[in-house]
Design a protein around this nucleic acid. Structure first.
Length: 431
DNA sequence: TCTGGGGTCCTAGGACCC
DNA sequence: TCTGGGGTCCTAGGACCC
């Protein structure tokens, strides 16, 4: 194993909670959860909250009481803050390896090739130390010869008493028998790529632990499951099949959707919400330098209300000319919405997907509409202006009238913390 | 009262082609 | 009685991830 390239997975512990704790020390040592959009359910939990058996994704109304009894805190999510803290954490981690893949807001893979004479465990400890000192975020480090093994190692670094203190688990340090022991003790559901459905199906084949899956025949696995899981088996055996992706491939679709603060019945309100989702999606589209060839619009009632009539239609519209223009996309979306809308339903959510994305530089000409480059340049400049103004003065400063003003459908966000690092008016103060 | 949002990949099956 | 073989493209649905 020693001669091969090695991977490290570095992630922030209970990331959103840790971000909040950096700026509010009163949260230390207490059960803390960060809630999803609309203050719906728990999406991050401190160790103290996990100890109270609060589950990932559990609805807020189910945990409110237990939190209150244990001096706990629930916070609305503050994504602007988490994104900024993520950027800082990632740049610190990047200093330790020649290659980094930012895999999610709180996780990154590092690849160490030609480091066989280095002590990667010691490097892992340095990463932890520096990330903590420079950003305030505690991180865990797992190291192994494939991404899947680095993931498992990261899991062991947090859950297993043997590594908890160090916070680093390097599989290369372990004698073979010991790795077998850890892998036998760890449930197969902890493997990256094995979710609840496959865990159940694997159990039918008596594959219960990480070790069982590692020992399985990849050909059999491919036949009974699919090629992805067969690849996972190879990765567990130290054969690296998943390369490091330093540059994120261009996005294939962009989704913007939200649940409403309460039920929405009128088309007028749906139109405003839809227009504001289109604006968000289009902004992301332009930031990516892409244009969309199709747009999909959907609305839905509340699936948790079993006694209410349910309706969740969608409509996909091909766009005659691919575009990144908010006004054109809005027009298409509202046209589709009008066709989907039925009176008599209590809607809970709506959204938009931008599809068939392609680079903006490769606009395909159109046989039937005379190209008028002049006009297009003006639209591009208009959109660029829109983005600049909104980036400088805040989202929604400049917007289409279709988005409305009062926005009664807005999501709940009752317990949000200040933009400690992301808003001039709310910067953290040292006193 | 109250249950998130944003992504990717794979497979099966149908329509269609020669 | 008896009805081919090989291919592509698209979509829906299902699985996974954080």
């Amino acid at each position: 194993m020693k001669g091969r390239a090695q991977f490290a997975l570095v992630d922030g512990n209970n990331f959103y909670v840790s971000c909040e704790r950096v700026f509010d020390p009163k949260l230390e040592g207490r059960p803390v959860v960060v809630l999803s959009n609309n203050d719906g359910c728990a999406v991050a939990r401190s160790n103290e909250a996990k100890a109270l058996a609060i589950r990932m994704g559990q609805p807020y109304f189910e945990i409110r009481d237990v939190l209150a009894r244990h001096d706990g805190v629930a916070l609305s999510s503050n994504y602007a803050l988490y994104a900024d803290m993520s950027r800082r954490m990632m740049s610190v981690i990047a200093q330790f390896a020649p290659e980094q893949e930012i895999y999610s807001i709180d996780e990154s893979f590092l690849r160490f090739a030609g480091f066989s004479h280095w002590d990667l465990t010691a490097i892992g400890q340095q990463i932890r130390q520096r990330a903590r000192q420079w950003t305030g975020i505690p991180v865990g480090v797992g190291i192994g010869p494939s991404k899947t093994l680095a993931k498992i190692a990261n899991h062991l670094s947090k859950r297993h008493a043997d590594f908890k203190a160090a916070g680093v688990c390097n599989l290369n340090d372990l004698p073979a028998w010991q790795q077998v022991r850890y892998f036998t003790e760890t449930a197969v559901g902890e493997v990256w790529g094995v979710g609840p459905q496959w865990r159940a199906k694997l159990a039918e084949a008596d594959i219960l632990s990480v070790q069982d899956l590692k020992m399985a025949d990849p050909v059999q696995i491919q036949r009974r499951f699919n090629v992805t899981l067969a690849r996972t088996v190879r990765e567990l055996n130290g054969v690296s099949c998943l390369p490091l992706e330093e540059v994120a491939p261009p996005r294939q679709q962009i989704i913007a959707s939200r649940s409403f603060g309460g039920p929405v019945t009128h088309l007028t309100d749906l139109r405003e919400a839809m227009a504001s989702h289109v604006a968000r999606a289009a902004e992301r589209l332009r930031k990516e330098g892409q244009i969309a060839g199709a747009i999909q619009v959907f609305i839905q009632t509340n699936p948790f209300k079993a006694d209410e009539p349910q309706y969740h239609p969608g409509l996909t519209l091909p766009l005659p000319i691919p575009t990144d223009d908010t006004a054109r996309l809005t027009k298409a979306a509202l046209w589709a919405l009008k066709r989907l809308y039925r009176e008599g339903f209590r809607y809970k959510k709506c959204g938009v997907m931008l599809l068939e994305l392609s680079p903006a530089g490769q606009r395909q000409g159109d046989l039937f509409t005379a190209a008028t480059p002049d006009r297009d340049t003006r639209r591009d400049r208009l959109m660029a202006l829109l983005d600049t103004v909104n980036q400088t003065f805040g989202r929604g400063t400049l917007r289409l009238a279709a988005e409305g003003v009062a926005q009664p459908w807005e999501m709940r966000r009752d317990r949000v913390t200040p933009g400690y690092t992301t808003g001039w008016g709310t910067l953290a103060r040292a006193t």
